[in-house]
Design a protein around this nucleic acid. Structure first.
Lengths: 207, 207
DNA sequence: CCGCAATCAAACTGTACAGTTTGGTTCCGA
DNA sequence: TCGGAACCAAACTGTACAGTTTGATTGCGG
């Protein structure tokens, strides 16, 4: 039987998680020393090993938490309003795009992505979780929105999946490839005008 | 005065580079031990340090070579035919897309990307080189093609840059986010039909 | 107030690895 | 055939670090 964790000890665990998160995102797996993690968490190294078998399991826990949290945020976007006119769809897509871009531009997020990419060969489970929750998540939100618009005849499009890829790809390309290699530097998301232009162009393709 | 390198010694250097390339792409910077590199290159560890000051400089050299080589390949695509009709543009874009996707799907390339992303915080120069040559390179090829088509009136589009992003993003999204975290596994590029559909859809946006 | 459980700091152990040193071997030019 | 330059294998050094051990300290339930 799994032993129940007391309030006190689960608080400690959270404290460790928080500290470890900071260090892992800043330094990556290899660069993060257990001493640094313990210090960042305000916890003795020894305690750290009471809660986690080893460094790898700690990182898996940290990344899993971050991903599920991000996934929750996304789910919030997901319940996006049904549309029944073109201007409404336009607004919905622009909104979606700017939300996603803002989220992605947060330094944390870029750091997380970098860490996952760097270490996914070592911890494939995390890579798969990432693919499912994040990229897959955004795609499914957009696809749902488009599918709904198609059903009510706002747009005409043969293959919603292809349309989704075109849109999501176009949006992400503003930030991803360059932002991810730009050391610690923040990336600035594109302006509202740029987003609008992209959305307009995309809509022309599917109306 | 810089001493001239003999034919013999530059052959050794190339040999070291080749071995190091294999190991770095497979293991990343941290994971690649100098012993493994020496063995893969068929060279004594000692010789390795005759040619390179340290591991970091060796990796910079390896990545720089790979990037400039890739850049050359791309330049070959760049001199793409001018078009003066829509079907020609369609064919040119589909061609471009399938070439790029094929290149990107090669395991080497994905591994290279992963390594660069992982280690760019440590070696920012490489990150910048990557951004300039690869992502920037593809974008500029596409932008040139579109600009030319616009000049001769084949397409109408306000902002060629935005259109370029939409297209390149749409194309890359087939492979990048998932392929890069999928451990060593190869990714299969999308079928010709999928590419065609994407191109058609894109063209509808800009005609 | 007692005693146990959680925590702590700090020192310790073992291993992995970058980079060096040593002492030979091969090969090439004179 | 000699001498030196490039190369080799293997052993060595120093450091960084994951994980452990030790022995003291705190704080809470009873």
């Amino acid at each position: 039987m799994q032993r129940q964790e007391s309030a006190r000890s689960s608080a400690k665990r959270a404290q460790i998680q928080q500290g470890a998160t900071r260090v892992f995102l800043r330094e990556g797996f290899a660069g993060a020393t257990t001493d640094a993690i313990a210090k960042a968490a305000g916890v003795s190294k020894q305690t750290l090993y009471v809660y986690y078998r080893d460094k790898e399991q700690l990182m898996v826990d940290v990344l899993t938490s971050l991903l599920t949290e991000l996934n929750r945020d996304q789910a919030a976007l997901a319940g996006s309003r049904p549309v029944d006119s073109l201007p409404e769809l336009r607004a919905a897509l622009a909104d979606l795009a700017s939300n996603v871009l803002e989220a992605v531009c947060r330094t944390d997020y870029l750091a997380l992505t970098r860490v996952i990419i760097a270490d996914s060969p070592k911890v494939p489970a995390i890579g798969r979780l990432w693919a499912k929750t994040i990229t897959g998540g955004v795609r499914s939100v957009v696809a749902d929105q488009l599918e709904q618009a198609r059903r009510v005849g706002v747009i005409q499009v043969d293959d919603v999946q292809v349309a989704t890829r075109l849109f999501v790809g176009g949006v992400l390309t503003y930030v991803l490839p360059d932002g991810i290699v730009a050391a610690g530097g923040t990336v600035n998301p594109p302006s509202a005008e740029q987003i609008d232009e992209l959305v307009d162009m995309f809509l022309r393709a599917i109306t």
